[in-house]
Nucleic acid binder design. Structure first.
Lengths: 102, 102
DNA sequence: GGTAGTTACGAATTTCGTAACAATC
DNA sequence: GATTGTTACGAAATTCGTAACTACC
């Protein structure tokens, strides 16, 4: 499983449509279709039903969607938190030793 | 950023040593070293100090570590939850219609 | 016939491992 | 000189896009 697969999955779930998800992700449809299938293979259960109108979430897909969104948010937050910690360290170095607390 | 990078990062942080992390991950040292550097580049701040004794976490690295562990756990749980939902659906189909609630 | 998803296949990208290098004790 | 992390470079694996295919209305 990869973060790209999770990202592709969320896009398809939200669009209900592989083609529109692909447009949103700036990739071709087959790339999305393949990654969704690979994700279903790895999890071991289908996440969507394929209908002539598009992709519809199955119960496992609904369960996965909530957690997938949370994972993507957590990844962003982890990076931002580390960046912030790095910026603090650099500004502290740049500012030199503090004169005092008062 | 990829899940592999997060996994590599946690291994290095826990081992304090690229070589031991690589052994634990069943890959060669350079693969780990490169992914750690790529992660630091993407985040935009160093996560470790390189010492002759190994790798030591910097403040941004400590911040990132907690969240990285949580992300890996969340990925596992997401897959397990979807699997469980799929198994329930299949057993319900296999069992046929319920006779009643009592 | 038009829309939607999926395979097939070759190309581009990414990741990897071996070997050589740099730095510290 | 022994240990540790990092580059260099070619090989392996993954991912991608175009084109062709299948299924349903």
């Amino acid at each position: 499983m990869s973060l790209s697969q999770i990202q592709y999955f969320v896009a398809v779930a939200e669009e209900g449509h592989v083609g529109r998800a692909a447009q949103r992700l700036y990739v071709a449809q087959p790339a999305v279709s393949r990654q969704i299938r690979a994700l279903e293979d790895e999890i071991g259960t289908p996440l969507f039903t394929r209908t002539p109108r598009g992709m519809q979430l199955l119960p496992p897909g609904r369960v996965f969607l909530d957690r997938a969104r949370a994972i993507l948010v957590a990844v962003e937050e982890a990076a931002n938190a580390a960046r912030a910690a790095g910026a603090v360290a650099r500004s502290a170095v740049g500012a030199g030793p503090p004169k005092s607390t008062g």
